[in-house]
C-alpha cells in the first residue's frame, strides 16, 4: 500500500459519502444520475465477488463491503425514499446504459486473463467502471444547474482513478512482475473521460463560481 493508492481510495470513499450526505441532509438527489449509481453497483457486485472466496486484508474487505453497502443505499434512496425520489431528474437521466453494459461484457468475454466466470465478471467490472460516469456527465450537461456537492462528487471520483494511475506507475517500478494491461488501459480511458469536466471544474474553482458545463 502506497500513499497514492491510499489517497485514491479515500477520495473514492469520500465521493460516495458526499452523495450520501447530500441526499440525507438536503433530502434531494437533484443532479445525481441513478443510471451511473446503478452501473457502479453492478461494477462492485461483479468485482467484489471475491469477498466470498478470497481474503486480502481487513482494509480490503471493509472497503469492499462499504462500497457495496453505500452503492445500494444510494439507489434505495433514489428509487424508494418517498421524499428523495421526487427530486430525481427522471426526464433528463435517460442515458441508455445498455449501450455501455453490452459492449463491456462482450469485450470482457474476448479480452481477459482467464476464461472463467469470476475472471470474466471481474474484467467486465473494470471495463464498465471506465465508462460508468458517462450518464452522470450527460445529466450534468443537460441540467446546467450543478450544485457544489455534485461537482465535488465527480471531481473526487475522477481524482481517485487519476491517483490510481500514479500508484500503478509507482508499483511498476517498485514491485517485480507488476503488470496489468487491462486495468491500466481501462484506468487511462476512465481518467481521460474526466478531462473535459476537470477543465471546467478548475475554471469554476479559480473564479469562485458555480460549475457550468457548456451545452
Amino acid at each position: 500500500m502506497n500513499l497514492f493508492r491510499l489517497t485514491g481510495d479515500m477520495m473514492h470513499l469520500f465521493s460516495i459519502l458526499v452523495i450520501l450526505l447530500k441526499i440525507r441532509a438536503t433530502k434531494s438527489c437533484r443532479g445525481i444520475s441513478l443510471k451511473t449509481q446503478e452501473l457502479y453497483a453492478l461494477v462492485f457486485v461483479c468485482r467484489y465477488l471475491d469477498l466470498l472466496y478470497s481474503f486480502v486484508s481487513v482494509y480490503n474487505s471493509v472497503m469492499k463491503v462499504t462500497f457495496l453497502a453505500t452503492a445500494f443505499s444510494i439507489i434505495r434512496y433514489m428509487r424508494y425514499d418517498k421524499v428523495v425520489r421526487q427530486t430525481y431528474d427522471r426526464e433528463q437521466d435517460t442515458f441508455r446504459y445498455g449501450f455501455l453494459v453490452a459492449p463491456c461484457f462482450v469485450l470482457a468475454l474476448l479480452i481477459n486473463h482467464k476464461f472463467t466466470l469470476t475472471e470474466v465478471l471481474w474484467t467486465f467490472s473494470i471495463y464498465l467502471e471506465a465508462v460508468a460516469i458517462l450518464p452522470q456527465l450527460v445529466l450534468m450537461q443537460r441540467t446546467q444547474n450543478i450544485d457544489n456537492l455534485t461537482a465535488h462528487y465527480v471531481a473526487l471520483l475522477g481524482g481517485y482513478r487519476a491517483l490510481y494511475i500514479v500508484n500503478w506507475v509507482y508499483r511498476y517500478f517498485t514491485e517485480r512482475h507488476y503488470k496489468q494491461w487491462i486495468v491500466w488501459i481501462s484506468g487511462l480511458i476512465q481518467t481521460a473521460i474526466y478531462a473535459d469536466f476537470f477543465y471546467f471544474y478548475t475554471i469554476a474553482w479559480k473564479s469562485n463560481k458555480r460549475l457550468q458545463l457548456p451545452a
Binding site: 481510495d9 486480502v56 490510481y164 512482475h177 507488476y178 503488470k179 496489468q180
Partner: peptide, 10 residues
Amino acid sequence: LSKSGRKDEL
C-alpha cells in the same frame, strides 16, 4: 494474488 497482486486493489 500471486498474479502480480492485482486483486489487492479496489
